[in-house]
C-alpha cells in the first residue's frame, strides 16, 4: 500500500469525525426491507401494493444516495491523503472478511443442494433402512435432476432440466459459453490490474472495459437461459427441489455478478476520471477480488449444478 501521499503515519492514529451516513443508511435499509415485506404480504393477500412500493423505493433511494456519498467521501479522503497505511490495511482486511462471509452464504445453498441430492431425495425414493418418508409417495422414483416430483399436484413437474447433455450439444449449451465468458473476464481484469500497476492507463482502460462488457454479456445470456427455462422447459421456481436449488443458486450468483459488474463499472468511471495510482488503488483491487470470487462460485455452480 502507498505511503508517499499520506500525512498521517503509523505513529499517529486517524479517527474520522462524526458521520451522518450510518443513521441514514440504517433508515434507508429499514424502509427498504419493511416495504419489501409489505409488498410480499400484499401480494399474498391479493391487495394493492402501491403504498408498499413507495416505501420500498424511498428506502432504496435513501440507501443508494447514502452509500454513493459514503464511498465518495472515502475516495475524497484518500485523495487528500488522510488515511494512514494502517487504516488502508483495515479496508483490505474488511474486504477480505466480507468475501469470506459471501463464501459462507453460498455454502448454505450448496450444502442444501448436496443434502437433498445425497440424502433427502434418495430417502424419498425408498433408499436406506428408514423407510418412513418413502411411505408418503410410494410410487416416487428417486433421480437427479428430479423431473417427476413426489407431490405432482402441488409442484408442477418440469419438462426438462438444465443438466449437461453431452458434447454433442455443447455448442448450443449456454452455461458452457457463460463459463468461458466468466473465466476470460477474470483474466481480462487481471490484465487491467497489470496495466494499472505498470502505470499503463491505456491497457487499464481497455481491459477493464472488456471485462465490464463480458460481464454484461454473461448477464444477458443468463436472462436468455432463464427465459428458455420458463418458456420452453417448463422449469420454474415452482418445479420442485430441482428448480428451487437451480434458480436460487444461479440467481444469487447472477445477483452477485450484477453487483460485481456494477463495482467494475464504477472502477471504470473512476479510471476515466484519472483515479488510481500504480501503488495506491485498493478500490480497484477490491472490485477485482470480488470479481474473482464470483468467478470461483460460477465454476462450482457449473460443476455441481450443471455437469454432475
Amino acid at each position: 500500500m502507498a505511503t508517499e501521499n499520506v500525512s498521517s503515519t503509523y505513529e499517529t492514529y486517524y479517527v474520522p469525525d462524526q458521520s451522518k451516513f450510518p443513521i441514514w443508511a440504517s433508515l434507508g435499509l429499514f424502509l427498504f426491507v419493511f416495504g419489501m415485506g409489505n409488498i410480499l404480504n400484499d401480494i399474498q393477500a391479493e391487495t394493492g401494493t402501491g403504498g408498499s412500493t413507495i416505501i420500498t423505493l424511498l428506502g432504496f433511494a435513501i440507501l443508494g444516495t447514502v452509500l454513493y456519498n459514503w464511498f465518495a467521501t472515502s475516495v475524497r479522503e484518500n485523495h487528500q491523503g488522510l488515511p494512514s497505511a494502517q487504516l488502508k490495511r483495515s479496508y483490505v482486511l474488511g474486504m477480505y472478511w466480507f468475501i469470506f462471509s459471501e463464501v459462507m452464504f453460498f455454502a448454505a445453498f450448496f450444502g442444501a443442494l448436496f443434502y437433498v441430492r445425497t440424502w433427502a431425495v434418495p430417502w424419498l425414493g425408498g433408499e436406506g433402512d428408514k423407510g418412513i418418508t418413502n411411505m408418503l409417495w410410494p410410487e416416487f422414483q428417486a433421480a437427479w435432476p428430479v423431473i417427476a416430483n413426489p407431490g405432482e399436484a402441488i409442484f408442477e413437474n418440469p419438462d426438462e432440466s438444465m443438466a449437461w447433455t453431452g458434447w454433442g450439444d455443447a455448442l448450443g449449451y449456454l452455461p458452457l459459453w457463460n463459463t468461458i465468458i466468466l473465466l476470460s473476464s477474470s483474466v481480462t481484469v487481471h490484465f487491467a490490474h497489470v496495466g494499472l500497476k505498470n502505470n499503463n492507463r491505456k491497457q487499464l482502460t481497455a481491459w477493464l472495459s472488456v471485462t465490464v462488457l463480458l460481464a454484461i454479456v454473461f448477464l444477458i445470456l443468463q436472462v436468455e437461459e432463464y427465459l428458455h427455462a420458463y418458456h420452453e422447459l417448463g422449469l420454474t421456481l415452482n418445479s420442485g427441489i430441482y428448480g428451487s436449488t437451480f434458480f436460487l443458486l444461479t440467481g444469487f450468483h447472477g445477483f452477485h455478478v450484477t453487483l460485481g459488474a456494477f463495482m467494475l463499472f464504477v472502477m471504470l468511471m473512476r479510471t476515466l476520471k484519472g483515479h488510481f495510482k500504480p501503488e495506491d488503488h485498493f478500490g480497484f483491487e477490491a472490485a477485482s477480488w470480488y470479481w474473482h470470487f464470483v468467478d470461483v462460485v460460477w465454476v462450482c455452480l457449473f460443476l455441481f449444478v450443471y455437469i454432475f
Binding site: L40, I43, Q44, A112, Y115, V116, W119, A120, V121, W123, L124, T133, L136, W137, V146, N149, P150, G151, I154, F155, T236, L237, N238, S239, G240, I241, Y242, G243, S244, T245, F247, L248
Partner: peptide, 14 residues
C-alpha cells in the same frame, strides 16, 4: 412467497 420447495417433501425437499 415464490413457490420453491426446499422444506416441502412434496417437491422433493425436506
Amino acid at each position: 412467497h415464490f413457490g420453491t420447495s426446499f422444506f416441502n417433501a412434496a417437491g422433493g425437499g425436506d
